[in-house]
Amino acid sequence: MIDKIQGCVNGDKMLIRRGRFVDLAFLLGVGDEDYLVTIEKGRIASIEPRELETITGQFSIRAASEVWQEFWKPMPKRNHHDIWAMLAAGLVELDGDLAPLMQNLQYFKDVLSSPRPKARRR
């Protein structure tokens, strides 16, 4: 799903609008792999595997691979449907300077969940 985030975000005009003041890079950790997500004015400029320890981004959001797999399902089970629910359940780790994350929290939540397929409502 990592590879789908860029296209999903950049194809969503309202999401880009809501993130128009976001210009930064952050680390997205999926299991043992870290990815540097670079955002320019709300658009995803690139998502690259982290090559060096000195590449940190402004903050990091990390969870186990199986947690993200569940997160990206059309209808995730509880504690996996939102990073703040994952936080309450101890399933995600946040590090670094969280101010820009909190300033744009719904934007970042929507970026992360952007590849989630639409579920049919019950």
Binding site: M75, I83, W84, A85, M102, L105, Q106, K109, A119, R122
Partner: peptide, 13 residues
Amino acid sequence: VCAAIVSAQVAPQ
């Protein structure tokens, strides 16, 4: 930020 935090508390259904 308050809304973005508690949005986790709304069920996806």
